[in-house]
């Protein structure tokens, strides 16, 4: 029985070492993030005020405000979500529930996966050619939203499919065995079960799109806008564009404004992510299995 009391010192050391590495891997990025956010906050703190949020851009850095960019970003996000969510979730439902398994379906799946990895500037070029030029939308809000919607679609499709797949097949069969049409079963049983997952995925993809700069610059979003978007055809700017513009100015005052803009953008992203978490927790309380 003496074997019960032996301790393998080497195994214990390895265990400790691995645990330390794992903790380091977690803490290091968090520290970097905190450092970055903290640094930006300190840099931009002097400009963070209601005037900054409600002001228009100006040649004088200490007067420059962010309102048109903020309004542009919000309008972009609403329009993008309105286009990408129905199409993306619909495509996911088709692929997951209806598409017959086969070569064509596999081809579509592989392509969606690849599209999610395409650099966003390519989407910008596509948007420039298709929406701005061919469809003559000009450098408008709607052209920007269409481009961002295309960028989001693969992510929304993949997140929704992932969510649909978490619903065990036995619930679909239970619905069909009660005499439900396929679609009714999906709508009344499957979708309510995976709604938290779909919502989380969609919001997280939106949070990513909110920071996209490259496609909007390619598209020709303006960098100096002293009016608010009034229609779908309005010229527009967005937070990342405004920040990009300010950082490329020589005056130090604009760099402070840029830091304050970054804080606003990061806050919006964190708010979106928090919404995703809250929604998921609230909905999951109702859905337990």
């Amino acid at each position: 029985m003496s074997r019960l009391y032996t301790v393998d010192a080497q195994a214990v050391a390895a265990e400790r070492a691995f645990r330390a590495i794992a903790i380091l891997a977690l803490v290091l990025p968090l520290c970097l993030l905190a450092l970055l956010f903290g640094g930006t906050l300190i840099d931009g703190f002097s400009r963070l005020s209601f005037d900054f949020l409600s002001g228009f851009p100006s040649r004088r850095p200490e007067e420059a405000g962010i309102l048109p960019a903020l309004a542009g970003t919000m309008a972009l996000m609403l329009l993008t979500a309105a286009m990408a969510i129905p199409v993306g979730v619909g495509a996911a439902i088709y692929l997951e529930e209806y598409a017959p398994p086969g070569k064509i379906t596999t081809l579509i799946e592989v392509n969606i996966r690849n599209l999610a990895g395409v650099p966003s500037i390519i989407y910008g070029l596509l948007g420039l050619e298709v929406f701005v030029r061919s469809l003559q939308m000009d450098r408008s809000l709607i052209a920007g939203a269409c481009t961002l919607a295309l960028l989001l679609l693969p992510m929304v499709v993949m997140a929704s499919r992932e969510a649909l797949r978490t619903v065990p097949r036995m619930y679909r069969e239970a619905a069909w065995a009660l005499g439900a049409e396929k679609w009714t079963g999906i709508r009344r049983v499957v979708l309510p079960m995976c709604l938290p997952g779909i919502l989380t995925g969609v919001i997280l993809s939106l949070a990513r799109a909110i920071g996209e700069t490259a496609p909007l610059i390619t598209l020709g979003a303006l960098t100096y806008v002293s009016f608010l978007p009034t229609s779908l055809k309005s010229a527009f700017t967005a937070l990342p564009i405004q920040i990009f513009n300010w950082t490329s100015r020589p005056q130090a005052g604009f760099h402070v404004a840029a830091a304050a803009g970054i804080v606003v953008l990061l806050t919006m992203m964190l708010l979106l992510n928090a919404t995703a978490i809250v929604l998921r927790m609230r909905l999951q309380k109702k859905v337990t299995w």
Binding site: E173, W176, A177, L178, G179, E181, V189, K286
Partner: peptide, 20 residues
Amino acid sequence: PVALRRYVGMVFQKPNPFPT
């Protein structure tokens, strides 16, 4: 077949009440 299943009910191996 969809209409038929209303007349021939089924109970499965694993209890599967709808979780929502």
